[in-house]
Structure formats: C-alpha cells, structure tokens
C-alpha cells in the first residue's frame, strides 16, 4: 500500500473541529470516527491526534471535560466552544474557496 498523502497543513484541525461540531467525543472515538468517515483516503496516525487536540484546547477552540464513558471508564471528552464553532464556519468557508480555486485551475484545458 502506498503511503497516503500527508494532510494539508491545518486540515487536521478542520476535520477535528467538524467531527466535534456534531457531538462531544473522547480521543479514541474521534480517531474511530475519522477512519470511518474518510475511509483510507485520510489516514491520521493516533500519535498525531492527541497533540493536535491539545493544541486546539490551548487555543480555546475546544474544551475538555472528564466524564464516564460508555464502558464505565473515565475518559476525556472534547467539545466545541462557541468561538470554535465560529472558527469552524470561517475555516470551512475558507477551505471551500481554496478548493474551488484549485479545482478551477486544474480544470483548465490544455490548448
């Protein structure tokens, strides 16, 4: 299997925010959800996940809380803050503009 391309800088943040926008989750569940949603196309190593989450937490986009998980063990649940939600909106818009611009370039026909 060839190595999947690295995520574009900053896109992991966007994905994490998006996933957390739907519901608060703990780290392992986020990792599961990422694989589930994106299939094998976007591989995020579990090792990169946690530093990224902590960075978002320190930036104030997400907040964390220790709660009992579905299996009765205590787990750290992350949820989006209001600032994070707005940031996600901005970034999503930004991403759309970026991808559509890139697409337009790539669709140029050679003469």
């Amino acid at each position: 299997m060839s190595k999947p391309p690295d995520l574009v800088q900053g896109t992991l943040d966007l994905l994490l925010l998006k996933i957390l926008a739907l519901q608060p989750l703990h780290g392992w569940a986020i990792s599961q959800r990422l694989t589930q949603v994106s299939g094998d196309e976007l591989q995020v190593s579990d090792g990169s996940l946690y530093p990224a989450l902590h960075k978002l937490e320190l930036a104030g986009w997400i907040t964390a809380e220790w709660k009992t998980s579905e299996l009765g063990r205590r787990a750290k649940f992350y949820s989006l803050t209001r600032a994070g939600r707005r940031y996600l909106g901005q970034e999503t818009e930004h991403w759309r503009r970026l991808t559509s611009a890139i697409s337009r370039v790539l669709e140029l026909k050679e003469v």
Binding site: E57, L58, A59, G60, W61, T63, A64, T81, R82, A83, G84, R86, Y87
Partner: peptide, 17 residues
Amino acid sequence: MEWRRWIHAIPARLRAL
C-alpha cells in the same frame, strides 16, 4: 469576540503552567 476564545483557553493554559 476574540476574547471569549481566550477565556476558554485560560483554564487549559493555566493548568499547563
């Protein structure tokens, strides 16, 4: 509204320090 974000970040940062 930027400040709100900072407020959210404070506990995490303080804890870290």
